[in-house]
């Protein structure tokens, strides 16, 4: 019998997916329903926005911003 699970299919780079998996494992696996392949994961629909915010926070730490010149 076929099984269906509701959720949000997230399509992203392998590097971003690695971060998502890391966030998931650090948070008692509440985000990921199914780890599909290198570029796809199925996420809890209700947790999608939360994950997005966490991903952005994680990226802020890892991606170095060029310094803004404040001279007028």
């Amino acid at each position: 019998m076929p099984r269906a699970s509701a959720g949000v299919l997230v399509e992203c780079d392998a590097s971003i997916k690695a971060i998502i998996v890391k966030i998931n494992s650090e948070n008692q696996n509440i985000y990921i329903i199914e780890d599909i392949d290198d570029e796809h994961v199925l996420i809890q629909a209700a947790k999608h926005d939360e994950l997005k915010a966490r991903l952005n926070a994680a990226l802020k730490d890892t991606v170095r911003e060029p310094e803004e010149s404040e001279s007028e």
């Binding site: 019998m1 076929p2 099984r3 509701a6 949000v8 299919l9 399509e11 992203c12 329903i33 952005n56």
Partner: peptide, 17 residues
Amino acid sequence: EGERMVAHSGFLIKDVG
């Protein structure tokens, strides 16, 4: 940059036979 992942909501179907 803000859009690193593309999301679709829906259903994943498995074990179709």
